[in-house]
Amino acid sequence: MSDVERQWTTRLRRRAVAALPPDKLLPDTQPSYVASWIYVFGVTTMSALAVVIASGCLLALRGPQWWHTSSVGHFVNSLHLWSVEIFFFAMVVHLWGKYFMAAWRGGRSLTWVTGVVTFLTSVGAAFTGYVSQTNFDSQWISTQAKDGINATGAGAYFNVLNTGQMLMWHIVLLPLAAVLLTAIHVLLVRVKGVVPPFDERAGAPAVTNHDANDANDTNDEKVVDA
């Protein structure tokens, strides 16, 4: 083995490309069973997350006085709230869909687990957002929450009455974790593929659109545009 082949960068690149070749990372087509509304809620969740992050960056740029007093600030603040509402709405429907599909089948357990952990992380991000509003609502929520958090023993490290600490959790740690976990979740979906319905032949190879047009009606393992 040459020096170049022994480099960790070379070995890492080869392992990454073997696990996730470019056509699998960004596929042109998807299996025919993906042509259903129940499959759109994952990407809806990610689209909402993009708006959450973008509107959150705008709020971070201008600060609380801006989002409390100016009309544009109110608008961006509302955009942040409603994108979070859509994020959770779509994520819950996505979760129900995947639960009833038993989406952990076919070696997809880690995909399921990363989804669950992302959901729990997002709940934490939403909660720290509520106590970071810097208004009477956030004061009320934090004073209501403190006893519950203290009862768990976590209050020594996670003090909901500490606005600065909650804000840092909300705008640094939890968004980082949520975005990182989402990226891992999507990569795992790319590696293992979208879980097929129960009556589909699991692991059937995808074919091209050209092949799909030429195939007979009995073969249902066809593709749709990605």
Partner: peptide, 12 residues
């Protein structure tokens, strides 16, 4: 959730 299960998908 129910509508997503039963509504026809465009182009299918």
């Amino acid at each position: 959730f129910v509508v997503a299960l039963v509504a026809p998908f465009p182009g299918r």
